[in-house]
Amino acid sequence: MQFNCRRILDALASPSSEFNDEMIIDHIENCRSCRDALNLPEKYEITLQGTGPSRAPDTVFENIMRIIRIENGLRPPGVLAEITTILPLVGMALLLILLIFIKLDNLIEFGQVVVENLSSSEVLNYTDAIRQLAHQIQGILKAALASQLFLAAGILTVSITWTFAIIRLRDTLKS
């Protein structure tokens, strides 16, 4: 082995040697002596090259498929996955529209009650009329409050769902 070969091989053990990687690669690829020096004795080299893959335990396949099937049951892949992503969005949008209509309906009902009570010819006692009106307004306001809370919950749900859907859509477009 030449002096230069010895220095090249020593450089393999020392990343900060006088030779850079290109010089080392170039030398070894063109130097039979260096390549031989890196090889193990023949019987070891043959064993190294002739070793096939180890057999994976049977449980590996079973576990992988079991987990995938379970996950697939919760969130189907492919076209079904897209449908299951869109359906909640559509549902949430419909719910939002419904809640807005309920709120408008409450306001309309409130107006109708006021008009009906003030214009009713059957109510002779103004005190009773005012009490009746106050009672009905109270009921309407309670219903309106409940619908407001329902609306807020709906908007929150829609926002969260859309956020996740947008993230997923972004990932899909990225891919």
Partner: peptide, 22 residues
């Protein structure tokens, strides 16, 4: 697999599990 055929993924697992394991 991309079209939803989960079981098809099993073919890939069988084919490459030994190599990945090694």
């Amino acid at each position: 697999v991309r079209n939803g055929d989960t079981e098809a993924f099993g073919i890939l697992v069988r084919k490459y599990e030994d190599f990945v394991f090694t």
